[in-house]
């Protein structure tokens, strides 16, 4: 296991996870993990299915209580200050959809009000322009293609200018062209806004491209962590996918 430190100065830390575990009865979904994320960085959460990635994201967003340990988001305990923190974070996943019967504009309006967005009409117009969904505003979400739905979901997740954005497989089911478009947009957004991203993905080229740091998970534990380049170098591989396969298989056979 690497001793590589993701943080540099405590002042820049926006996510701090210390000895966090999540148990479901006898099953340890997450087993005493610790990590930190620096402001404006993108952290990739990697691991096989059931490794505990979604469990961690849910705990970081405060919608799943940890069994033990401490989670601080923006220097505040997520469970104690969830109401305040929730205004500063947002979430996009193709597995959690927006109401299909409502139009794109209606959905964005509803979530804009929920997040207390000022100048909501302007904000929606800006997002529609940036994400190229202007022509979709009056269409029902249920009638959009997968690529269009993803762009709308991203628009919803940026409606409150989140300081921390959770992305759960944001480009799943997209063709390479659309997926690349989304990644480019998110990278530009991050560079302009200084937001921090937490990305769970099975797409290794995506992680390699977008993430400053990566946490490799297996059976609820952190197997290794570091920057994609660092991991590739240390494991003497050509790309992150090969590193992932080696770590995942090692983890499988070691148990």
């Amino acid at each position: 296991m690497s001793n590589h430190k993701i943080m540099e100065t405590p002042l820049d830390i926006v996510v701090s996870v210390r000895n966090v575990s999540k148990n479901y009865g006898d099953i340890k979904a997450v087993n005493s993990i610790s990590f930190s994320i620096e402001k404006s960085h993108t952290l990739g959460l990697l691991g096989s299915n059931g490794a505990g990635k979604t469990t961690i994201i849910m705990m970081l967003m405060g919608i799943l209580k940890s069994s033990s340990g401490t989670i601080n988001i923006l220097n505040k305990n997520i469970y104690k200050y969830r109401n305040q923190i929730s205004k500063e974070i947002n979430f996009a996943s193709p597995f959690v959809e927006l109401p299909h019967k409502l139009t794109v504009l209606q959905n964005l309006t509803v979530f804009g009000h929920i997040y207390g967005v000022k100048n909501l009409s302007y904000k929606i117009e800006k997002l529609a322009q940036d994400l190229d969904i202007k022509d979709l505003l009056k269409r029902r979400v249920g009638r959009l293609s997968a690529g269009q739905k993803t762009r709308v979901s991203i628009a919803k997740s940026l409606i409150n200018d989140p300081k921390i954005l959770f992305l759960d497989e944001p480009t799943a089911s997209l063709d390479p062209d659309h997926a690349d478009w989304i990644r480019t947009y998110l990278e530009e957004y991050k560079n302009n806004s200084g937001a921090t991203f937490i990305l769970a993905s099975h797409n290794m080229p995506e992680v390699e491209r977008m993430c400053n740091n990566v946490i490799m998970m297996g059976r609820g534990k952190v197997i290794d962590q570091g920057s994609p380049a660092d991991l590739i170098r240390r494991y003497k591989r050509n790309n992150l996918e090969q590193v992932f396969l080696q770590l995942a298989r090692n983890d499988r056979y070691s148990n």
């Binding site: 919608i63 979430f91 959690v96 959809e97 109401p99 979530f111 929920i114 207390g116």
Partner: peptide, 18 residues
């Protein structure tokens, strides 16, 4: 139930809505 049918409960749970 509309929230469950539309698989929207996750978005609501993450939001500031208490």
């Amino acid at each position: 139930i509309e929230e469950l049918w539309s698989r929207n409960l996750g978005n609501i749970a993450v939001s500031p809505l208490k």
